[in-house]
Design a protein around this nucleic acid. Structure first.
Length: 414
RNA sequence: GUGAUUGUAGCUCAGUUGGUUAGAGCGCCUGAUUGUGGUUCAGGAAGUCGCGGGUUCGAGUCCCGUCUUUCACCCCA
């Protein structure tokens, strides 16, 4: 093991073969599907002004207050590595005027959060996400969830659950907070210590407290949704109906709380049992973010790629299934054959053929072993005999058969 | 940030109450008569025992610190 003086930072890791191949499968399928829905890729910088995140995610949220890599650069500017993708995306769209108000973009990118690593949580992690800007529209929210379901299906994930809820319109926030506080007041003494504090600071957090006693009390009081306006409740119903219409099952969970400030109306989460305590593979919601003169409304989601991979593995879908196999291996016997094979490899590769060879005069046995391990379908063997005759031995690795062909025939048939 | 937990060859791990040159399996390399892989057999290379201090005649084994791993809390994807 290498000394860890030069190892990656805590919670950050190198992604290499063979694991890299499941990443590539996920990315390739995602790009294909995004194209079907009319989403364009957007690559924003990893580093932004701190204010971009403070303004959109919320100054008082945990993500901003205690989880960001925030620092001053050499010029004394306040910067931060992006902890999520929505803020930067909206920052970009806000700069595009009219066209930014009706855009569909996706991203596949690393995010950074300075938290203690644990199952399903890294300090550098990766998200595939989308944002669709536009005025609130239940059908847009439903389509967004449908897209997400489409991705999971394409990747081969089974056993995930979609939980949905609503935060209501901006105007509903105060009534909800007041209503919940009032409903919880009589039970104050029975709540856990954390929740007694949360009532004042962030009532919504009481709703999803894992403490059994708190959960029991929460079940007895009205849900947050019941304090919202009729319009807000109708919006949620329309989203759920649209999903039902498309054959997508969701579970209404009024206890679902999403902490970022920008959410309004529909919020949802996709969970999977294969994960540990962090059981959400994806989260999404409708939002309104004000980074310019006016707020930009939209809907979007983000999926944690590491968590998706963990869930896929539990479904028996692993990286080794996506490792590329096949191709050709060139075996060279003697210096002359080695030189000739360098030329042959160049020609084959120019034709787009995957081909490998030993770049030194090694024994045939050693070269055959490498050929086998490379997963090559065919091996082309050339020694003094073949070079002088202008031929090559072509061996089929699976069958073990081989035949001597003229070099031009080899080039024509491969 | 809090609380646990881990760190020995490329990988997975043994290393007994601190005591000679730190082991195994897998992998890797070489060979088993002429130019043929996946099996078998034989041999071989490979470890500053995470790092830094300390205790001791002596530390992979004990103590402290530090970094890292894994897990939970908090929160999120």
């Amino acid at each position: 093991m290498a000394s860890n003086e030069f190892q990656p930072l805590q919670g950050m890791s190198d992604i290499r073969a063979p694991e890299i191949y499941i990443w590539r499968m996920i990315e390739e399928k995602a790009r294909t599907i995004f194209a079907c829905y009319g989403y364009e890729e957007l690559r924003t910088p990893s580093l932004e002004k701190l204010s971009v995140f403070k303004r959109s995610i919320g100054d008082t949220t945990d993500v901003v207050q205690k989880e960001m890599y925030a620092f001053e650069d050499r010029g004394g500017r306040e910067l931060a590595l992006r902890p999520e993708g929505t803020a930067g995306t909206i920052r970009h769209l806000a700069g595009r005027g009219e066209e930014g108000l009706n855009a569909r973009v996706f991203y596949i990118a690393p995010m950074f959060r300075c938290e203690r690593p644990q199952a399903g949580r890294k300090r550098q992690f990766h998200q595939v996400g989308v944002e669709a800007t536009g005025e609130p529209n239940p059908l847009a929210d439903a389509e967004c969830i449908a897209l997400q379901q489409h991705l999971l299906d394409a990747w081969g994930l089974t056993g995930s659950k979609i939980q949905i809820s609503t935060r209501g319109a901006m105007d509903d926030r105060q009534p909800v907070v007041d209503g919940l506080r009032k409903a919880l007041q009589p039970h104050l003494a029975e709540l856990c210590e954390d929740c007694q504090r949360r009532i004042a600071e962030n009532v919504l957090r009481v709703i999803d407290c894992k403490n059994e006693k708190c959960a029991e009390i929460v079940r007895r009081i009205p849900s947050a949704i019941e304090f919202m306006s009729a319009d807000s409740r109708a919006y949620l119903d329309q989203v759920i109906n649209a999903l039902k219409n498309m054959g997508i099952e969701v579970e209404l969970n009024p206890q679902l709380v999403r902490g970022l400030d920008y959410y309004v109306h529909t919020v949802w989460e996709i969970t999977h049992d294969a994960l540990g305590a962090q059981n959400a593979i994806a989260g999404g919601g409708r939002y309104e973010i004000a980074l310019g003169k006016k707020g930009i409304p939209g809907v979007g989601f983000a999926m944690g790629m590491e968590r998706v991979i963990t869930s896929l593995e539990a479904c028996g879908i692993t990286a080794d299934q996506f490792v590329p196999r096949g191709g050709i291996w060139l075996v060279s016997l003697g210096e002359e054959a080695l030189a000739e094979n360098m030329k042959l490899a160049r020609e084959l590769r120019a034709k787009g053929i995957h081909c490998g060879m030993e770049l030194a005069a090694k024994s045939m046995k050693a070269q055959m072993r490498k050929a086998d391990r490379s997963g090559a379908e065919k091996v082309i063997i050339r020694g003094e005999n073949e070079i002088s005759k202008g031929t090559a031995m072509v061996k089929n690795m699976a069958e073990g058969s081989q035949e001597e062909l003229k070099l031009e025939d080899v080039l024509r048939t491969t």
